[in-house]
């Protein structure tokens, strides 16, 4: 079974080996954060804050550091304007799913469609990846599993036209939620980002009455590049939330902390496997605990 063992073990081991709070202790904590992919800048900022708090609160005992650090991380994760809930009320709603190649967009759409349908929503999905080999067949299979309808054109056709048709169909069939798949694209590809922007503008123009959610899917194994991904995708299509996938592995996904503190985009969902049920709401508490797990 793929479970995380020994929540907070690592930090506890470190803390137990120290008699007093000193520079070396902070350095070891720094390591924990770096190995979780939080990046140098975010890590430094957190450690500085931690030091300030220790001084301010006149903390002497080593064990108190742990809670303090966790509080600090949780603050970053919850310190956003919008909350961590996915925003699809009132109906109709449209969810645009974007991200770099292979992160888990199509799979997440399958899981999400299944979940929303179970909640009693009428869900429609649009096969906006007309580029990758068999991407449409893959989404079709997920639509079958979730038991929802799909709007698709042929491979190689214009993705913007698919989204346009999806919107018309969602209106005609009175769908509660339209979920749109898009092809994976690296954020440094100008033409592909322009294509995405065009799709985004069609959504704004053709479905202005809809509640809009634009989800950037980030693979938890991704390192510091995720920050650039989020920045550029935000410019192209105004992302409103992040889905962190593949958290069932050993990667911690700590880079989302950096993303959240720099861009103010909340993490909303996490993927924890390849099955249709393996989608969860983001829980800052669990996430922070897992960062300290061995």
């Amino acid at each position: 079974e793929k479970t995380r063992k020994g929540i907070t073990e690592k930090v506890d081991t470190i803390l137990k080996s120290y008699q007093k709070i000193d520079e070396e202790l902070f350095e070891e904590l720094e390591e924990v954060l770096i190995t979780a992919d939080m990046g140098v800048n975010t890590t430094m900022r957190i450690i500085e804050d931690l030091k300030d708090k220790v001084k301010e609160k006149k903390i002497k005992e080593v064990f108190e550091i742990r809670e303090l650090l966790k509080e600090e991380l949780k603050e970053i994760l919850t310190d956003v304007e919008s909350d961590n809930k996915i925003n699809i009320e009132p109906s109709p709603a449209i969810i645009l799913v974007v991200g770099v190649n292979g992160v888990g967009k199509t799979t997440t759409i399958g899981k999400l469609a299944y979940r929303l349908k179970k909640e009693g929503k009428k869900v429609l999905i649009a096969a906006g990846d007309t580029f990758r080999a068999a991407a449409i067949d893959q989404l079709q299979e997920w639509a079958n599993r979730a038991g929802v309808e799909i709007i698709a054109h042929k491979e190689g056709s214009d993705p913007a036209a698919v989204i346009f048709d999806g919107i018309q169909a969602a209106k005609a069939r009175k769908a509660d939620v339209l979920i749109c798949d898009t092809a994976g694209r690296l954020h440094n590809k100008k033409n592909l980002m322009n294509e995405l922007n065009k799709i985004f503008r069609i959504v704004e123009r053709e479905f202005s009455e809809a509640t809009r959610e634009v989800l950037l899917v980030v693979d938890a194994t991704t390192g510091q590049n995720a920050i650039m991904q989020a920045k550029v995708f935000k410019e192209a299509c105004d992302i409103t939330g992040i889905v962190l996938t593949k958290l069932d592995g050993t990667a911690k996904g700590g880079v989302v902390l950096a993303v959240q503190s720099e861009l103010n985009v909340p993490v909303k969902l996490v993927g924890v496997g390849e099955r249709i049920e393996d989608l969860q709401d983001f829980d800052p508490q669990n996430f922070v605990e897992a960062i300290f797990a061995e």
Binding site: A36, D219, T222, G223, G249, T250, A251, V255
Partner: peptide, 12 residues
């Protein structure tokens, strides 16, 4: 291996 992989690449 994906070139974007972070710290976990080694474990994998």
């Amino acid at each position: 291996v994906d070139a974007m992989t972070g710290q976990d690449a080694v474990t994998v």
